[in-house]
């Protein structure tokens, strides 16, 4: 068994696709129209056959209170691995991305938390080489 797809709820799929591709740097993988929404996924260019991230419409009434509560407490809903958190923080901040937590050394890794502008917080992590 392997993880093929995971999802984040997004307020607006078009805006989410722009943020996840143009800003973060993922690539669109599937975009299948389904009535007013789409089955919309992105993948990392570093692993195009790797797990897909589904940008799922946030219309269900349970989604907003759930996400608002996590957002208020600064809790990220997804985590992406990067080579260098400080470099990503600089690159993304220059594009106007807001971080709720700047790069922080947590011993085994460096982490930071950003606002994806679609209603979620995302943690970036660069694990340190063992030893």
């Amino acid at each position: 068994m392997r993880i093929a797809l995971t999802s984040v709820f997004v307020d607006d799929q078009k805006a989410a696709l722009r943020f996840y591709t143009d800003v973060l740097g993922f690539v669109e993988h599937r975009n299948v129209p389904l009535g007013e929404h789409s089955w919309l996924t992105v993948v990392s260019p570093e692993s195009p056959d790797g797990p897909e991230l589904l940008l799922e419409p946030a219309g269900h009434p349970a989604v907003q209170p759930y996400r608002d509560a996590l957002m208020a407490d600064g809790i990220p809903l997804a985590q992406f691995a990067v080579a260098d958190v400080h470099a990503e923080h600089a690159r993304l901040t220059a594009q106007g991305v807001v971080f709720t937590q700047p790069p922080t050394d947590v011993g085994m890794a460096v982490v930071a938390v950003l606002d994806d502008t679609c209603g979620n917080l995302v943690q970036l992590i660069a694990e340190k080489p063992a030893g």
Binding site: D73, G74, I75, Q101, P102, T104, V106
Partner: peptide, 24 residues
């Protein structure tokens, strides 16, 4: 050290810098 932290960040710091494994 730095003001204006979220609950999640405070949890992260207490664990990473002080070894405190408290629940949120």
């Amino acid at each position: 050290v730095r003001d204006g932290r979220t609950l999640f960040e405070i949890c992260t710091l207490l664990l990473a810098r002080h070894g405190r494994t408290l629940t949120r």
